[in-house]
Computed example of a mutant assay.
Amino acid sequence: MKIRMVNSGVFTPIDDIQATLTAPEQGFYWIDADAEDLNILQPLFSLHDLAVEDCLSEEEQRPKIEIYEDHYFIVINSIRFDDEEIFLRSLSVFLGRNYIITVTNQKINELRTLKPILWEQEVSEPDRFLYLLIDLVVDNYFSVGDRIEAKIEKLEEDILMHTKKSHLIEIIGLRSEILWLKKVLGPQKEVINILNKKDLRLIDDQLQKYFSDIYENAVKIAETFETYRDLMGNLREAYQSSIANRANEIMRVFTAITTIFIPLTLITGIYGMNFTNMPELDMKYGYFMIIGIMATLGFGMFLIFRKKDWI
């Protein structure tokens, strides 16, 4: 657990947790904790039992906002795209009048990225801290969306160039991840909408208007992932079409080869009969003549098929 007093974007480490019980003359306290630290923090800040229970739960938390008498409890999901796989990491926030508590069980990049922004904008209020944090979380969805789009384009190009069975596995896996993200984006969008529209006494009225920009971005993200879902459906159709075309190409080649050998088989079948009186059997160069006819016939049919682009 790390405790800092933030005033005009400047961080002052606090060693004694009891010091946070007294409101600072300027600035606010930022307590960066994990779930186990809530055993200490809950009685000190009178955190609601249900909110603490949600933080301690090992189940995946749905984005939400809960309004209590002297603090708010907010859950949002940070997104990461590592090693071609999408991860969502829960970020729980307790917002009070003079403090903000962030609770994470894993590293959240947005918390690290937020520090220089707090210093640059000389932040001294916990509600502004919350605004900048959620803004970073939502913006990160755009960068992940760009990487997903690039992956879809590359996958489409690979399918058109050379279709493989592994492509279908990639399509199914990516589509399921996009659908999973869409389910999360819905409630997260509603959380931001509440921060934008509902009368919240712990958030300054002027600052609350800025949440409308974040909400618009959240709507755009939801629409973008809806488009990605449609693109994955088109990509699956393209894969199936490519496989069908490839099978048709193979069948066309086999058909052409079979067609070429049909007249050759007819000729060999005729001269393979065991009749005694067959005039050509006594010809001195009959064998070479028949072989020449067969070669000419086969090569001629091959050239005709190539000219018609059948093989």
Score class of each variant (00 low, 15 high):
residue 240 Q to R: 11
residue 303 L to E: 09
residue 19 A to F: 03
residue 50 L to A: 05
residue 75 V to G: 09
residue 283 M to D: 03
residue 158 D to A: 12
residue 183 K to H: 12
residue 178 I to Y: 04
residue 200 L to A: 01
residue 131 Y to F: 14
residue 20 T to D: 07
residue 96 G to N: 06
residue 83 D to E: 13
residue 216 E to H: 12
residue 218 A to Q: 10
residue 286 G to K: 14
residue 233 G to S: 13
residue 128 R to P: 00
residue 306 R to L: 11
residue 118 L to T: 07
residue 281 L to C: 05
residue 167 H to L: 11
residue 181 L to W: 02
residue 4 R to N: 11
residue 158 D to G: 01
residue 88 L to W: 07
residue 172 I to A: 10
residue 142 F to G: 00
residue 117 I to N: 05
residue 184 V to N: 11
residue 143 S to H: 10
residue 6 V to E: 02
residue 118 L to K: 05
residue 290 I to E: 11
residue 42 Q to Y: 04
residue 39 N to I: 04
residue 120 E to Y: 03
residue 152 I to L: 14
residue 230 D to C: 00
residue 37 D to E: 08
residue 44 L to V: 02
residue 51 A to G: 06
residue 93 V to S: 01
residue 207 L to C: 05
residue 205 D to P: 06
residue 231 L to M: 15
residue 10 V to G: 00
residue 137 V to F: 03
residue 301 M to T: 11
residue 110 E to S: 12
residue 64 K to Q: 11
residue 242 S to Y: 11
residue 11 F to S: 02
residue 211 F to G: 03
residue 289 M to R: 08
residue 1 M to K: 09
residue 65 I to M: 13
residue 186 G to H: 08
residue 92 S to D: 14
residue 211 F to E: 01
residue 78 S to Y: 14
residue 185 L to G: 10
residue 208 Q to T: 04
residue 220 K to L: 12
residue 210 Y to T: 10
residue 287 Y to H: 09
residue 276 T to S: 11
residue 41 L to W: 03
residue 163 T to I: 15
residue 42 Q to K: 12
residue 86 I to H: 03
residue 60 E to I: 13
residue 68 Y to E: 06
residue 152 I to W: 05
residue 300 G to R: 03
residue 290 I to H: 06
residue 295 A to Q: 01
residue 169 I to W: 06
residue 56 L to I: 07
residue 235 L to G: 06
residue 307 K to F: 12
residue 269 G to L: 05
residue 124 S to L: 07
residue 201 R to K: 14
residue 180 W to S: 15
